[in-house]
């Protein structure tokens, strides 16, 4: 596989679940292990055609965000991970979203195997959970309380110190 044959793709086309097409250059796409794997597979087969990668559970508005992230990180791909400018950008990037978007973005990052984005989203959600009350957590993440009032009171009493 080390032979540098003619097959080298410069761009791929990614299709969102709602059938929108995105042309992505290889360096940007490589930020996602899923896309990178597809490209590597095609290159090994020696295909010269532009390939189409369908992402059956990422909508186009979420895909736009993932690609925006990948583009930014591709620019810094040769820097070390501790670039302050990039860190600042990451933070500003996530700050804009509501939790529904953040949820979808997290799942898309997981599905597309974009580890740094997944980690970033999880850390961001974790940081916001830290300061929320149980009631706020349920509201924001749209979680139904399936405990009886007695059960809930028991759990709280077990660890009353954590609720002070």
């Amino acid at each position: 596989m080390a032979s540098s044959s003619s097959s080298s793709l410069s761009r791929v086309v990614v299709k969102s679940s709602d059938n929108n097409l995105f042309v992505v250059n290889k360096k940007v796409a490589s930020q996602s292990q899923l896309l990178k794997q597809c490209i590597d597979n095609m290159e090994e087969k020696g295909t010269n055609d532009v390939i189409l990668i369908p992402l059956s559970n990422v909508t186009s508005n979420i895909l736009t965000l993932v690609l925006e992230y990948c583009e930014k990180h591709a620019d810094f791909a040769d820097d070390d991970n501790n670039n302050q400018e990039l860190k600042q950008w990451d933070h500003e990037f996530l700050k804009k979203f509501d939790y529904a978007t953040l949820n979808s973005l997290t799942m898309a990052a997981d599905y597309m195997v974009t580890k740094s984005l997944l980690n970033l989203c999880c850390q961001f959600i974790a940081d916001s959970i830290k300061d929320l009350t149980v009631q706020q957590i349920r509201q924001i993440f749209d979680i139904k309380n399936d405990f009886t009032p007695q059960e809930e009171a028991d759990i709280k009493n077990e660890n009353a110190w954590a609720f002070r």
């Binding site: 974790a126 959970i129 149980v134 957590i137 979680i143 759990i155």
Partner: peptide, 13 residues
């Protein structure tokens, strides 16, 4: 998440 937050989060659902 830190232990205290997790102990509290046990009663979300």
């Amino acid at each position: 998440l830190p232990a205290k937050t997790l102990v509290r989060s046990r009663c979300v659902c």
